[in-house]
Computed example of a mutant assay.
Amino acid sequence: MYSKITVAGHPIHPMLVGFPIACYTGTLVGYAVYASNGQQFWLNLAIALNIAGVGTALLAALPGIADLALGIPRRSAARTVGIAHGGLNVVALGLFGASLGIYATHWDGPATGVTAGLALSSAGLACTLGAGFLGWTLVQDYHVGIRLTPLQESDEQTVQSAELIHLRRGSHAA
C-alpha cells in the first residue's frame, strides 16, 4: 500500500502532519499562558498558531485523503483505521476552527476569558493525539507509505491472501 502523493518516492502526508501538530500544541500553550498571566502577546500567539494549525491541517489532509482513496484497498482493516484516523483529524480541525472563530476578533484586545479556548484546544489536541496513534498504526501495522523489499512484498501478499481466505470462511459460516 503505497502513498499516491509523493516527492521523490517519499509520501507527502507524513511530511506535513508535524506542522498542525506543533501549531495545535502551541495554541493550547498560548491559551494556558494567557489564562495565567493575561498578557496579550500570549493570546495573539495562540490565535496565530491556531490559524497556522487549521491551515496546515487542511493542507496535510489533501494527500492524506488521496492516499486513503487511492492507496488503501477497500474492505481492508487498514481502510477502517484510515477512516477513523481521518475522522479524528476532522473533529480536531472542527474544534480548533471553533476556537479560532471565538478568539480571532480578540487580536487587538483582551478576551473576557479563555475557558472555551482551553477546552476546545485541549479536546482538539486529544483528538490529534488519537489520530496520530492511528496514523502510526497505518504505518507500523499495515505498512501504508512504506516501500517494501521484494521479499517483504511477497510476505505481505501471503498474509493478505490468508486474511482473505479467513474472511471468506467466516462469511460462509454466518
Score class of each variant (00 low, 15 high):
M1S: 11
M1R: 09
M1C: 07
K4H: 14
K4E: 12
K4Y: 13
I5Y: 04
H10E: 01
P11S: 10
P14C: 08
F19Y: 09
P20Q: 03
A22R: 00
Y24T: 07
Y24H: 13
T25F: 06
G26E: 00
T27V: 11
V29L: 04
V29F: 03
G30A: 04
Y31I: 05
A32N: 02
A32D: 05
V33R: 07
Y34W: 10
S36E: 05
G38R: 09
G38H: 09
Q40Y: 03
F41R: 09
F41Q: 05
F41M: 06
W42V: 03
L43Q: 06
N44C: 06
A46P: 05
A46H: 01
I47G: 03
I47P: 05
N50L: 03
I51C: 06
L59P: 01
L59D: 01
L59F: 11
L59K: 00
L59T: 10
A60W: 01
A60M: 04
P63A: 04
L68R: 13
L68A: 06
A69P: 02
A69Q: 15
P73T: 07
S76P: 01
V81W: 11
G82Y: 07
I83C: 04
A84D: 02
A84H: 08
A84C: 08
H85I: 14
G86C: 11
L88R: 01
N89V: 09
V91Y: 00
F96D: 12
A98W: 05
W107I: 15
W107F: 15
G109Q: 09
G109F: 08
A111M: 04
A111P: 05
G113F: 08
V114N: 01
V114T: 12
T115H: 07
G117E: 03
G117L: 03
G117S: 03
A119T: 14
S122N: 13
S122T: 15
A123S: 12
A123N: 07
G124C: 12
C127W: 04
T128V: 07
T128E: 09
L129Y: 12
A131C: 10
T137P: 04
D141Q: 15
Y142M: 09
T149W: 06
P150C: 14
Q152I: 05
E153G: 10
V159P: 00
Q160W: 01
S161I: 09
S161P: 00
E163R: 14
L167M: 11
R169P: 00
G170H: 12
S171Y: 00
S171F: 02
A174H: 10
